[in-house]
Amino acid sequence: MIERRLLREVLLALDEVPAVALLGPRQAGKTTLALEVAARRPAVYLDLESEVDRAKLSDPALYLSAHEDKLVILDEVQRAPELFRTLRGLIDQGRRRGQGTGRFLVLGSASIELLRQSSESLAGRIRYLELGPLDAGEVGAGRLQALWLRGGFPLSLLAASDAASLRWRLDFIRTYLERDIPQLGPRIPAETLRRFWTMLAHQQGALLNAAALARALAVDGKTVARYLDLLVDLLLVRRLPPWSHNVGKRLVKSPKVYVRDSGLVHALLGIADHEALLAHPVAGASWEGMVIESLLAAAPAGTQASFFRTAAGAEIDLLLELPSHAAPWAVEIKRSSAPKLERGFYAGLQTVQPERAWVVYAGNERFALAPGVEALPLPEAVRLLADRDPGE
């Protein structure tokens, strides 16, 4: 059992608000985390993909009212978005009787429809938390290389072999394309969406060029935007925006795009083992994506992430704007165990004037790399962010 960092946040949220939505891609560990919560307080668990459990909710108000003294966990809630109106009524009734917090924990794959339904029906009554796959801080230094190759989905990371892990990821991709996405509403040919997803993997960490993607798929730019929005909403792809402060420079305005799980990047590209990964051109970009996901998973709630790049060549891989901090933290990402800094990074520091500057690299020691710049192993960088009081 790998302890999830988000467990503490879920428990805290349930003590503060009536409903908590735990969103994330399939197989990221939402159900396991919810059952861990259920082990700590009286709870009833319903899986809305189960016909038996759905039958219990034929009259949802009646059933849920009978369990008002327990936390009700509703898994795969996107299968029954009509429940949100019922939840609103029960929450409001409970508030009038002094039962104001910890009523419902809803789990679901993030989707436009799910967020729209819940935000309309439960505005002011629900808190959203995102659970991604396992990250570097959760798996520890000993599993870091496996995390990079296999990604953070628990069944992929903990598979008996690299080959078994790859088979699991290929099945995962196929299931998403052929079953899960059609059930969420969009009518997109599975093969077309797979081609698009694979193109994004080939261009991991690159600036979005929607026109080139549209030409390759023989569709228009609006269709590419729709495909990208879908994968972003499902928490499978990250669109990292450029830093947009007015600093009198010609800043790059296109976002960078990452397939969020490095294991899915490698599966889409047919990379089976570490030897093949190290020889592949995507190696540096997939490492960078894994680092970004791990750091953002550990960062305090409300942290804003971006990258910095100018037309003149100044560049910083990741800027973290933490709550209550006047200046961002600058992060450069290196796969090498002996990192070196380029002129563009120093130029970026001069423009951004960050509060802190880190180089997160693949080694094991923390040391000063340059005046005002620290080199940090990834697990330590994650730990420092996770332990950080947002107000410090």
Results as ranks from 00 to 15, higher is better:
Arg40Ile: 10
Glu82Pro: 01
Gln204Asn: 05
Trp287Arg: 07
His202Cys: 14
Glu332Arg: 00
Trp287Asn: 02
Leu115Cys: 08
Ala311Asn: 11
Gly94Ala: 00
Asp53Gln: 04
Ala55Asp: 10
Leu35Asn: 03
Ala327Asn: 12
Ala386Arg: 09
Ala347Ser: 13
Arg5Ser: 10
Gln350His: 15
Ala330Leu: 04
Ser306His: 05
Pro182Met: 11
Ala136Tyr: 04
Ser111Tyr: 10
Trp148Tyr: 09
Leu7Trp: 10
Ala301Phe: 15
Gly151Tyr: 04
Gly344Gln: 09
Pro60Phe: 05
Ile173Leu: 05
Glu392Phe: 12
Leu193Asp: 07
Met199Arg: 10
Lys253Ile: 13
Arg95Ala: 15
Arg88Lys: 15
Glu392Thr: 07
Val382Phe: 00
Arg125Met: 13
Glu9Gln: 13
Ala211Thr: 13
Pro328Val: 06
Glu138Gln: 03
Pro242Gly: 06
Leu107Asn: 08
Val331His: 11
Phe153Asp: 01
Pro18Gln: 15
Ala283Arg: 05
Ala381Lys: 06
Arg226Glu: 11
Arg309Asp: 08
Leu129Ser: 05
Ala61Val: 02
Leu184Ala: 02
Ser119Cys: 10
His266Asn: 14
Phe84Pro: 00
Val359Ala: 01
Gly151Lys: 01
Phe84Ala: 00
Asp220Cys: 01
Ser244Met: 12
Leu200Ser: 04
Ala225Phe: 09
Phe308His: 02
Gly221Trp: 13
Gln203Val: 12
Leu62Tyr: 11
Arg250Gln: 15
Pro339Ile: 08
Ile188Asn: 00
Glu380Cys: 03
Val17Leu: 04
Phe84Trp: 02
Pro60Asp: 04
Leu71Arg: 07
His202Leu: 15
Lys253Trp: 14
Ser161Asn: 04
Ser336Cys: 05
Phe104Tyr: 14
Glu191Gln: 06
Ser65His: 06
Gln27Ala: 08
Phe308Arg: 04
Ala285Arg: 11
Pro42Gly: 02
Val232Thr: 11
Ser121Trp: 12
Pro182Glu: 14
Glu365Ala: 12
Val232Cys: 14
Leu208Gly: 09
Glu113Val: 00
Val44Cys: 00
Lys56Ile: 09
Leu378Val: 03
Gly391Cys: 08
Asp69Lys: 01
Ala279Gly: 09
Ser294Lys: 00
Ser58Tyr: 12
Leu200Thr: 03
Asp389Ala: 06
Ala214Glu: 12
Leu22Asp: 11
Ala211Met: 11
Trp329Lys: 01
Arg85Leu: 14
Lys30Met: 10
Gln78Met: 08
Leu22Ile: 07
Glu36Arg: 06
Ala298Trp: 09
Val17Met: 05
Gly124Asp: 02
Ser58Pro: 03
Pro81Gln: 11
Arg116Pro: 08
Ala330His: 05
Gly348Glu: 13
Glu392Pro: 06
Val360Gln: 07
Gly313Met: 05
Thr101Ile: 10
Leu114Ile: 04
Ala141Glu: 15
Ala330Gly: 01
Glu355Met: 11
Thr32Gly: 02
Ala381Thr: 07
Tyr45Arg: 01
Leu33Phe: 02
Asp53Asn: 04
